[in-house]
Nucleic acid binder design. Structure first.
Lengths: 244, 244
DNA sequence: CGTAAGATTGATCAGAGTCAACGTACGTGG
DNA sequence: CCACGTACGTTGACTCTGATCAATCTTACG
């Protein structure tokens, strides 16, 4: 057990702030969070606030697209369910992130709240119009989507070529980065082992074993939902973050 | 063996500029679904034509980003190589597609020619400027990136949750769609089994077995690089294309 | 305090990887 | 034109990682 204040798992979104920055090390592994700095601005015209409770559905898979959402607080997952029940989580979204902004026609992925969450529902038209008017908004939107694309592609490598242990190690580092915690601060994961498993293309049991392995190796400490990174460097190596 | 008349299936581009095939082999692999219609326009300012021979490097993994490329003819793959030699192909690109337009700082993925290819090298600045000036260009760029994002996420499901057999079936359907061939026309795959394997997160042998299985089931015909779809419906089912 | 949901650990199984052999097309040069 | 060599594709035998099935433990909560 390790000490660690049990602050809410997800930081309230400081308006107008940004979790900017991809650290040099960060550039290597999945999903550099782009800090949309324009959060507050999205709230303006025709958009409404939406609350979702834990596991509540925000977007139904296959639903017609008319709007997208920006996460204000809490954690959200995008989900693709196959006929036979197999599930893949597309991504975890944190305050500032956009959900469904890439859809065309219908939402390929659904969206659900991992924790109680607040979102801002924005008509797609409003985004189009604003992008047309506001040059720098358009540019930021473009950068955001580019970052999403980089993140998705980094996960292709993870899912296509990494071992179970490597996936788990990479995941911890990704979450540390995305939750933007100070060094030596425990990560309080908002999602269950089942969510992690479906994000990493593994089973719950394999995720557990991966975590246990890292703990036994002294790389991390585990206290239920909280993870403390003891040796980030070794964790990077364990996750094969290093490239050719 | 099936018929397979090897007529050049190269369609003229929507906007002048034919998708010129550089080799007989390349002639088959023509249009891409997402192929933007603004192909010709990209050629304008400060951009240069680049030729790449088979397996030639177009972008080095980790190279600094200063420009991106548009495929004019041929087929290109994006590649991520891990330290120990494991390889993941990010995507296959066809005429009209953009390579490296999402990069920030450095190219996470490298790019190599699958067939002899011609590309148009475009300074990123030129794209930014044009997007700033030209409203509809910016919108198309946005739509293109959204489509890329949808494609990448569909592959997350494939890599995370689909079996080997399903991946192979899905792959054939994806290629049929992307190469935009008339129904009942054989698909002439430009890439090797090794490329397919690294695209699907499998080994060469497993890809072969998957193909053989589909052939035995009567869903497809195989003649080396050429694939003929006998039963697209069944292939969709075999690939679990059906959703929840 | 009792129940339920989630997490962890163990034992066994199966799907895909690895290793190996063989087949087939193609290009080169005699 | 044929012989050979090489690269690629296919098939088979065996192995191993991660899935499945099952039991136990922990924590949260009514």
């Amino acid at each position: 057990m390790f000490a660690a204040h049990s602050d809410a798992s997800v930081k309230p979104s400081p308006i107008g702030l940004g979790r900017c920055a991809t650290s040099p090390a960060a550039a290597h592994h999945a999903a550099a969070t782009v800090a949309p700095t324009w959060m507050a601005n999205m709230l303006a015209p025709g958009s409404t606030l939406v609350q979702a409770e834990r596991d509540g559905e925000i977007i139904a898979q296959g639903a017609a697209v008319d709007c997208c959402y920006q996460v204000i607080s809490g954690c959200v997952r995008t989900v693709m369910l196959l006929e036979d029940g197999r599930r893949q989580i597309g991504e975890f979204l944190f305050p500032g992130d956009l959900v469904g902004c890439d859809a065309a026609g219908e939402h390929g992925f659904g969206a659900e709240a991992v924790t109680p969450a607040t979102l801002c529902r924005i008509p797609l038209r409003a985004i189009d119009e604003r992008a047309a008017r506001d040059q720098s908004f358009a540019r930021e939107l473009h950068h955001y989507m580019a970052a999403q694309l980089r993140g998705a592609r980094a996960r292709l490598v993870l899912l296509g070529r990494k071992t179970a242990g490597e996936r788990v190690a990479s995941f911890i580092l990704e979450m540390q980065e995305r939750l933007d915690l100070p060094r030596h601060e425990a990560i309080d994961l908002p999602m269950s082992r089942a969510d992690i498993a479906d994000y990493l293309g593994l089973t719950i049991e394999t995720v557990c074993r991966g975590l246990t392995e890292l703990r036994r190796g002294g790389l991390i400490g585990i206290d239920r939902t909280r993870i403390l990174i003891h040796d980030g460097h070794a964790l990077g190596r364990a996750g094969s973050e290093h490239l050719h």
